[in-house]
Nucleic acid binder design. Structure first.
Lengths: 188, 188
DNA sequence: CGCGTAATTGAAAAGTATCAACACTGGTGG
DNA sequence: CCACCAGTGTTGATACTTTTCAATTACGCG
């Protein structure tokens, strides 16, 4: 649920000095919009500390959360590669520290550094691989099963992420989320 | 719903002769398993003709269809990049003609040909970009809205793909699919 | 023609959303 | 220090949607 990618962070920390300067640190408060869907952004962001959410808002104003991003996850690279407006919003949940890199420098690294190229390929592959099973399960299992699994995988999730966001991630109302939670706590 | 990618096919057709030989043509009958989830495969497949489905089967035996692949879509590249067992099955729906390329040659092209590298990056980005909005809509809209949209986007879909498969794609039972279809046809 | 697969339909059961009222919490200003 | 406020979370009753199950029909093909 909260994705991380340690390889990318340690890669950045071990980069040659000339490339190190590509990455600029920036801080965000909690509950801040870092990038807004359907706009152009100039940067690719890599999370150094904190938790963000990656979400889509539909025309009815309902929010759907695709993923929660933790350490080492990057955001905005899709748009740098296909040169389109970003298709989902990124907002901080906690305080967040990011590295950001410009599109231009991102492409320099992509072309000049085979390791970086491969890391990016791998991270894209991982994003794809994670989505499939998640939606398969969410569509086929009952809400109860999904929440049970969530609590096993991320026992501390309720302290890290607001209930409304978790409900949006699961694609259910907060009412259903509460009902199922109480059913789980008080088994028959 | 049925994804295609013409760039990749025309790229292959315009390749230098030395690289052309990397791609081997193969035919499959309809309803054939081309690759089975949780196994290793040796090839990356690119669809030249026909329609396939990319699906996950959960422990209850229920099938969830991620995508239908048409011309120019490739399959198996995720596994070539991250060197893991494939995470979803590929089966033909119609008769299918594919190009296949070995992992080894795939990596040769990836490293030696910047155009190919970029095409692969782009195709991965597209796969990610398509999934997000699809699941967001499917979770938030009613089944009826989703089916209406499907029939508008792919008017001929019912002749191309079995109903059971479409239902699995939508994540609903075929009973629900039929009920909603008849509601749409006979409006109040 | 006969067989197996795919599709259709109704009735009952299960699951989820909607709505509305109420409780809790942390911060702010008087 | 207290009162108030806004955001967040809780809960019950009801209506709606979807699944499950089972019986039946249609279709393609040897």
């Amino acid at each position: 649920m909260i994705r991380t990618n340690n390889n990318l962070l340690s890669y950045i920390n071990n980069l040659k000095t000339e490339y190190q300067s590509f990455f600029i640190e920036e801080h965000f408060d909690k509950k801040t919009v870092i990038a807004k869907e359907d706009t152009r952004i100039k940067w690719i962001y890599i999370i150094k500390e904190g938790i963000t959410k990656c979400s889509l808002t539909n025309e009815d104003g309902k929010e759907f959360i695709q993923e929660f991003f933790g350490k080492g996850m990057k955001f905005g690279e899709l748009e740098a590669i296909n040169n389109k407006a970003i298709y989902c919003s990124m907002s901080s949940i906690t305080k967040v520290i990011v590295y950001k890199i410009s599109h231009k420098n991102f492409h320099v690294l992509l072309n000049e550094d085979a390791d970086f190229n491969h890391l990016v390929l791998l991270s894209l592959v991982t994003k794809i691989s994670n989505k499939g099973p998640r939606f398969a399960l969410q569509q086929q299992k009952t809400v109860k099963d999904n929440i049970k699994k969530l609590l096993v995988d991320f026992p501390d999730i309720l302290n890290q992420i607001p209930k409304q966001d978790i409900a949006n991630y699961l694609g259910i109302t907060i009412r259903s989320f509460n009902r199922v939670l109480s059913e789980i706590k008080k088994p028959s």
